[in-house]
Amino acid sequence: MLKVTIDNISIEVEEGTTILNAARKIGGKVVPPAMCYYSKLKGSGGKCRTCLVKVAQSCTKDTRPMSKLVASCSTPVQDGMVVQNLTSPEVIEARKGIVEFLLLNHPLDCPVCDQAGECDLQDLSFGYGMEETATDDERREYPMTDIGENIKLHMNRCILCYRCVYAADQLTDKRLHGVLYRGDVSEISTFINQSVTNEFSGNIIDVCPVGALTDKTFRFKSRVWFLNPMNAHRECTRCSGKVAAWMFGNEIFRITGRKDQFGEVEEFICNECRFEKKDINDWVIDGPRHIKRQSVISANHYEETKKQSLIDPIEGKMHEQK
């Protein structure tokens, strides 16, 4: 076991653990924001640079600080390492710079974006962004495209985190999804307009940290904060059938994977569950999902109200909360 100290809190982790995952073990504020790393996608991380931290002491043997900030998601812990996240002004400054870069060409169309309210970039900008923009230059624009029947790609909003590329690579059997061109004109693309038809392709929507990939069956149906996210399950031959059902009254507006406190889905789900099962009778509703108090989604206190009335409105389908 290796001992690492992050923002003055120490923890022991196994060899090979990254700083980010050690911080996630501690939890709370010491966890650096991660826009591209996704623990369930091999090879992800290192790209967005929002998770940069300062290593104040490399290890027990080498007590010098590392000369540059390092990406916590791809830097393994060494024994005796001392890391600063929020306690380093340098890190905060750098992160502000990164947010500015990520927003430089972002259209800021949150008012019409389906991701608003559950967008990692929104949260990050709220946390680290500046009040004023330093640029009045034109922003990059791409035409909107369809990726398969049910997925919309708004390349304007993409932050090129490559998560969807890894998801397409690792979850689907035939990769038809990748990055074209280079630099700031890079584009997410399906191979020469071929659509992603694989039955797990819908997961690229869930891994996308912004509103670049959205669910066409849900587009413009509702703002997420008017909906109540409920744990639901069904018998499914393809996936575990364990999902989050986003409901308004008795109506299911959309189905997603169940996201944990770090915004990652617990399990990937299949397209049938995601896109086709929108009837309340398709699902067994288990009870409300816990959403962070700070999230706008919790603003309507659905969790308490749902817990209190675990009988109706979905008669007979609601199970006792454990």
């Binding site: 290192g46 790209k47 967005c48 640079r49 929002t50 710079g97 990164i98 870069f101 990520l102 430089l104 060409n105 932050i159 090129l160 490559y162 990055v179 061109y181 280079r182 630099g183 700031d184 004109v185 890079s186």
Partner: peptide, 8 residues
């Protein structure tokens, strides 16, 4: 274009 500071 992989990492945001250099790309943007």
């Amino acid at each position: 274009g992989q990492c945001s500071p250099c790309r943007e």
